[in-house]
Design a protein around this nucleic acid. Structure first.
Length: 296
DNA sequence: ATCCAGGCCCGAT
DNA sequence: ATCGGGCATGGA
């Protein structure tokens, strides 16, 4: 991986195991806006990013080397050796081979804790486009203006202070439905320090999950997503409707199987690398409609 | 129209 | 412990 400066842009060359589209569009993140093929606007960490992938190079438009190194390389998880991860997973279970081959460029983003928590509370029983829309609305109404790309204005996800001003009625107005009280409870526990990122990061996997589940509206699935996508627990294995179907197809002969059994199966097969396996499987399974009626 | 979506709560067994 | 109904809203 080589970083160089070209006029106002920063270019990363010789990057491997990375695909911008696969990484952004695989359901882990809701703040990306497609401009064109491999050309995206991303909002994260209170910043606006216009990024493109061209001929296996990553181009960060109008950025400094410092910001790319401090914010975006960690955000895209570019310092991690995914070759090693894939090797481990393939060795432990060759069932994963088609998924890993096709979704070769997926990386797990390191997203902000509060935004990830709020976003995945919203995500329950919703489709991704609608989740994206709600997170965008929250940002427009309560975040800061960041700038404009291709004539479209972008706003940061509200910080803790801005978030604590949002009432349950506000959440309802933003079409969060029955999740509004859950969101208010999360905001309350965050602002009073009952839920504290630094404290949770020091906990073991089981205890971190339990702590997050003290929030109303946070169950195993949401807790696991928050842990995997924003707290660095790469062994977390969120089981949603897709993963359930995929695992049933791959390992249980298509038979209806409880999430508990599926979770145990994943732990045994993938261990510390469960989160990566989950992402490869989720993206692959969703794109190929694994376990779903194909003529839909 | 009816069903379901990156689920979870709650009450009934 | 486990199961099923209900839940706001929008898209297929």
């Amino acid at each position: 991986m080589r970083i160089l400066k070209d006029k106002n842009n920063i270019i990363i060359k010789e990057i491997s195991d990375f695909d911008l589209q696969q990484t952004l569009e695989c359901g882990q993140c809701f703040r990306f806006y497609k401009q064109d093929e491999q050309d995206y606007v991303v909002v994260a960490y209170g910043r606006l990013l216009h990024i493109m992938e061209k001929d296996n190079n990553l181009v960060f438009l109008n950025k400094t080397i410092k910001e790319v190194e401090n914010i975006w390389i960690p955000y895209f998880d570019l310092n991690r050796d995914y070759e090693k991860i894939k090797e481990f997973l393939l060795k432990s279970d060759e069932t994963l081979e088609p998924a890993i081959k096709e979704k070769n460029g997926v990386r797990i983003l390191n997203q902000e804790f509060v935004e990830t928590l709020i976003s995945f509370i919203i995500s329950q029983n919703k489709q991704i486009p609608h989740i994206k829309h709600i997170v965008k609305t929250i940002s427009e109404n309560f975040g800061d203006y960041l700038g404009e790309v291709n004539g479209e204005k972008y706003y940061s996800f509200p910080n803790m202070k801005q978030l604590s001003n949002i009432t349950e009625a506000d959440f309802r107005e933003m079409k969060t439905g029955f999740r509004a009280p859950y969101l208010s409870d999360a905001v309350k526990k965050l602002s009073t320090g009952i839920i504290n990122e630094k404290e949770i990061r020091m906990l073991k996997e089981e205890d971190a999950r339990k702590k997050l589940m003290e929030i109303k509206g946070v169950g195993e699935k949401v807790a696991n997503c928050v842990m995997l996508f924003s707290l660095g627990y790469r062994q977390a294995f969120p089981i949603d409707v897709w993963i359930k179907r995929i695992m049933e197809t791959l390992y249980f002969n298509g038979k209806d199987t409880s999430k508990e059994i599926i979770g145990k199966c994943a732990k045994e097969l993938y261990g510390e690398y469960g989160g990566y396996a989950q992402q490869y499987l989720f993206c692959f399974g969703r794109d190929n409609k694994v376990g779903k009626n194909k003529n839909e």
